[in-house]
Amino acid sequence: MRALIIYCHPRDTSFTAAIRDRVMAQLDKAGIEHRMIDLYAEGFNPVMSAQEHTDYLTPGINRAALESHVELLEWCDALIFVYPTWWYGLPAMLKGWLDRVLLPGIAFHMPQAEGETIRPGLTHITRLGVFTTCGASWWLTRYIGAPGRRTLIRGVRLLCAQGCLTAFAAHYLMDSSSDASRARHMAKVDKEMAKFLRGLPVPAEVKA
């Protein structure tokens, strides 16, 4: 398994950063090869340019602006998002990454005839993980519709392999969290990662 982590948070001292580290530690423990795209650290530009929009429907050319990101997307067979939920959805930085990197001919294939819909392009991705924090409560997030979760767990997953395994963990009421609530959430992250890694070979050092 090859895991790609898309990490999105402006502060490296955040609880979201701690979640990122916990996810990576679980991948290391399982002997999983992984790479990370830290959107803020690299100064990712979430804005699609006029030229990118012009080239959007032309496979091969449309990936030129973000070739390294596309290559990582093609390299991985597991995709993990770690980010804070802002205004019930994805941070602009992360939404811009989806807009600019999940391109026609890569993430999905455009319709070829009237009445057709798009076809999945990420069928090599068999596992999808989402780890986030929310200032709002669980019930308020669900009342709004949880658009961030839906975009990834439903929208992106539809582009992946059939039966793509998913894992999800969110710490709600983050702004009034406590040491105890954060510790409970880390335990939940561990549980979801165990589910995420289910069925993979156990590393030799763990067997011993």
Rank of each mutant, 00 (worst) to 15 (best):
R11G: 00
T126M: 06
A146V: 08
G148I: 12
Y7E: 04
E74N: 14
P10N: 05
G31I: 03
R198F: 00
L57N: 11
P120I: 05
I6A: 02
I32C: 11
Q26W: 01
M24A: 14
H34R: 12
H34M: 01
S49Q: 04
W97V: 09
T85H: 02
H9S: 05
T126F: 05
R11Y: 14
D12T: 12
F15W: 02
H171L: 15
Y40R: 03
E33N: 08
S49D: 04
A3V: 15
L66F: 06
L165R: 15
I125W: 04
E116S: 11
R11D: 14
P84Q: 13
G43A: 02
R11T: 04
M1P: 01
Q26A: 15
E192W: 01
I153R: 10
G148K: 12
A65V: 02
S176E: 14
I144W: 08
A113R: 15
Y88W: 15
T123V: 14
C8Q: 03
L102V: 14
M36L: 12
R154S: 13
P91M: 14
A170V: 15
V206F: 00
D99H: 11
P111Q: 08
M186N: 02
I37P: 00
E74R: 15
H53I: 03
V156F: 01
G199S: 05
R2C: 00
R20I: 01
M48Q: 13
L128P: 09
L98R: 06
A17I: 00
G145A: 06
A64P: 00
T126N: 13
T85D: 01
V70D: 05
G31K: 08
C164N: 09
M36P: 01
Q26C: 13
F108A: 03
M110W: 03
E114I: 11
L98G: 12
M174N: 07
H124I: 05
P104K: 13
R20K: 14
F44R: 09
L122K: 11
E116H: 09
A50C: 00
E52W: 07
A65P: 02
L79F: 11
A41E: 11
A18R: 15
E192F: 01
L159R: 02
L79Q: 09
C8H: 04
A25Q: 13
G89Q: 10
E67D: 15
L98C: 10
F15D: 05
D38M: 00
A64E: 13
Y40Q: 01
V189H: 10
L73S: 02
A146K: 13
A18Y: 00
F131A: 07
H34L: 01
Q162M: 02
G121I: 10
F131Q: 07
E67W: 00
G31E: 05
G129N: 10
E192T: 02
Q26M: 11
S68D: 15
T166N: 04
G199C: 02
T151L: 08
A113G: 06
F196M: 10
S177F: 06
D179W: 01
F44S: 10
P84Y: 05
P201D: 08
G60Q: 05
S177P: 09
A180F: 00
R149I: 04
I19Y: 03
S176N: 04
K188S: 05
G121T: 12
L159K: 04
I37V: 12
V82L: 03
H185A: 05
Y172S: 03
R35H: 06
D179L: 03
L27M: 07
T126C: 03
L197V: 07
M1E: 08
D179N: 04
D28K: 07
M24F: 00
Y56I: 03
T132A: 15
R142H: 13
A187M: 03
